[in-house]
Design a protein around this nucleic acid. Sequence first.
DNA 1: CTATGTGCAAAGGCTTTGCAAACGG
DNA 2: CCGTTTGCAAAGCCTTTGCACATAG
Lengths: 151, 151
Amino acid sequence: MAMDKKENFNQFYEKFLNLAKNYGHYDSSQREVILRVLYHSNAHLSADEIACRARKYIRISLPTVYNTLNFLENLGLIHTLVLPPFKTKTYKLKLDYHDQLVCIKCGTAMPFCDKKLREKESEILQNYNFTAINRTIILYGVCFSCQKKQR
Amino acid sequence: MAMDKKENFNQFYEKFLNLAKNYGHYDSSQREVILRVLYHSNAHLSADEIACRARKYIRISLPTVYNTLNFLENLGLIHTLVLPPFKTKTYKLKLDYHDQLVCIKCGTAMPFCDKKLREKESEILQNYNFTAINRTIILYGVCFSCQKKQR
DNA sequence: CTATGTGCAAAGGCTTTGCAAACGG
DNA sequence: CCGTTTGCAAAGCCTTTGCACATAG
C-alpha cells in the first residue's frame, strides 16, 4: 500500500479498504473516523487522544479504538511509539517511508532522509543477520521550540 | 559520574555512594543488590527481572525495586527503554551508550555500537536544531532465528 | 444468514501510593 | 532520634477480554 502524503483522505481510505478487505475487514463509521483522525495528525497520538478527536464526529468507546489500532498494527500500517514518561503507547499512520526525527516533548515528527545513515543501517542489520522490514529510522531528541519553552 | 566499564563493581558502588549521599540517600542492602544486578547486565532489564535476579541474594519487594529505579532515574544514572510489545519499561545503567537492534517478532534486543552511525546521528540532530536527550539509536528488523521460523 | 464490529463491564498487568515497622547515620 | 527505606496491601492507569447486541456483506 504505497501512500503518498499529498493524496487526500478519500483516496487513502479507498486504498485502505482494498487492502483491508483481504483480512476480513468490515467497514464501520468508527474505523473510518479513526483513520481520518490518524490521517490528519502529524504527531503520534495516544488511544485516548484518538478517541477524543473521533468523538467530535461519532460516539466511540475506548475498546473500539484499541481494537482498530491493533487491527491496523497487524496490517503494518501503524507506527507505534512509547515516549517519556513511558505510560502510554502512541500511534501514527505510516503514510510514507521517510525516516523521522521525533521530539520527545511535543511528539512532533520531522521526516528526513539521509542516504549515508541508511547505508550504515543496512550494514549493521546485515552484520547481525537481521532482515530489515518496513524500514524506518527514528531518532529522538528535543525540538527547537520545546528547547525554548524549557528555559 | 564517569563510569568506565572496566572498573569493578566496588569501585563503581563507591562512586555511586558519593554521588547519592548528596541526594539524601541512605544505604541499604536492597539498593546495593539492585545496583549490582544492573551493573552486571548488558541488556535492558524489567523491574520484574531485576527483582528475580536480586532475590538470589536477598529478600526484596517489587515496590522497592521501582522505588530504587526511580531514584536512580532521577539521578540520571539509568537509561529507560520500552520495546515491543510495549508492555514494560526496561532499565539499564548508563555505563556506556549502547544502541540496540530490536527484533520486532520476538523482542530480542541486541546491543551494538557503531561510531560512524553515532556521528551521523549527531549531524542530523544538529541540522534540525534538535537537542539529543537520552541518546539511543534503535534499529528494527527480524532476527535470524525468527527468519528461520517464518519459513 | 454469517462473520465482524461495537459498547459495556470487568479483568489483567505494570507501576505507584499509603502506612506502619525497620533501619541508617 | 530523625529521616529514609522497606514490605504489604491497595489503588491507579492503560489495555485487553467476554459477551450480548448491532451491523456489514
